[in-house]
Amino acid sequence: MLPAPTPAPPAAPTANPAEAVLTIANVSLAFGENHVLQDFSLTLLRGENIVVMGKSGAGKSVLIKCVIGLLQTDSGTITVLGQDVAALDHNGLDRLRTKLGFLFQSNALYDSMTVRDNLLFPLRRQWLTHTPAQEAELVKQALEDVGLADTAAKMPAELSGGMRKRIALARTLILRPEIILYDEPTTGLDPITGREIDHLIREVQKKYNTSALIISHDLACVRLTADRVALLSEGRCYAEDTYAGMQANADPQVHDFFV
C-alpha cells in the first residue's frame, strides 16, 4: 500500500523461513488450585500465523500474556526471538517488547488521548528516537495501513468497535513488530467487520512478514488467518494441524470445535 518506513527497522524478510521465532516449551501456570496451563508446548515459525483455539476460560489469553511477560509462568520456558522471557530484566523485557505487538481483546486504547497520541505513545516510550517528521510519517502510514487515514485527531470514544480494533492494530504496527499477538481479534464485531479484520491480519502478515499467535474461537477467523491451528485443552496443546487437518480430525474434542 505504502512505501516502507524509514526510521524503524523492518522485519527481517531474508531470515530463514523455518526459523522458530517463538518457542513455548513445557509451560505450566496455576492460579491457586486452578491449573490453567500444564506442560503446554508450541513453536511459531517466522512468517507463520498460528491460531490457538480453546474453550472460554481454557487459558488462551493467559498464554499470550505469559509470552509478552505480563504474567510469569510457574515452570517451563518461553523463548521469543532467541531470548528467554523469564530471564530478562525490566529493560530487557522493554527492548524485546519493541519487537512484539499485542492486540488486546478490549483494544485498550487510551481514552484520554487522541488516536494520534495513542499511536505515538509506544513510539515515544520505547528506546527509539524519531524526529517529529518521522513520527508524523509513521502515524500516517500506520493509519493508512488499517484504512483509517482521517481519524488521527479523533478520540477513541468517537469511533465504532471495528474502527477501534483497527486503530489498536495500527498502534501495534507502528513499532514494526516481528511477532504480533492477537487476543480474540474479532470478538464482539459483526461478521462483516470481523472478516475485514481477518483480511487485515493477513495483509499485515504479507506486507511486514510478521509472525502471529492468534487467540480465537471464531471459526471464520481461524479459517482465514491460520497457517496452523492449535487446540488448547486442559492446559496443554491437545492437537495441532492445518485448518483442513483439524477439520478432518475425528477426535471428538477436536471435532466439536469445527462442527
Binding site: 505480563l70 525490566h90 517488547r97 488486546f104 481483546q105 485498550a108 487510551y110 481514552d111 509506544p122 516510550r125
Partner: peptide, 18 residues
C-alpha cells in the same frame, strides 16, 4: 480502575512504560 478494567494499564506495560 477503568484503565485496569479496559486493559489500558497492561497496554502501557507492553508499550515499554512502567
Amino acid at each position: 480502575s477503568s484503565m485496569r478494567v479496559t486493559e489500558q494499564i497492561d497496554a502501557m506495560s507492553v508499550s515499554g512504560t512502567n
